[in-house]
């Protein structure tokens, strides 16, 4: 069997992704030559990564479920990294006992 165009589609085509057939046509500079990657307008992804996320250009696995960059009580509603406990009335409680601020996305009505 001969692949004329290899299968693969980005996990998230949040922005229109490029339809390059070969790495040299790819608009995203880090993608060049990475022939196993699906080329998107933003980045290159492999669909499977043992750590549960995806690998980009052999660099690192990004946690697919999002990361919390906060280290203090400013962390928003859902904060699995620093707030392991969920309290129905208070929201997420961080390990140091602080409560995460409820977060509302300002572009949502």
């Amino acid at each position: 069997m001969n692949w004329i165009i290899k299968p693969g589609s980005p996990i998230d085509d949040f922005v229109p992704y490029c339809q390059a057939d070969k790495p040299s046509q790819c608009n995203y500079k880090d993608c060049a030559g990475a022939e196993t990657y699906t080329c998107t307008g933003v980045h290159c992804e492999v669909l499977t990564c043992v750590a549960g996320g995806y690998t980009c250009n052999n660099a690192s696995c990004v946690d697919y479920w999002g990361q919390c960059f906060q280290t203090d009580a400013t962390c928003p509603t859902y904060c699995p990294t620093y707030c392991p406990t969920y309290c129905p009335t208070k929201g997420w409680i961080c390990t140091d006992g602080k409560v995460c601020n409820p977060y509302t996305n300002p572009i949502l009505p």
Binding site: M1, N2, I4, I5, S9
Partner: peptide
């Protein structure tokens, strides 16, 4: 295949 988006030639 419209889901996986691959295009193959089968002898």
């Amino acid at each position: 295949n419209a889901f996986a988006s691959g295009f193959a030639e089968l002898d």
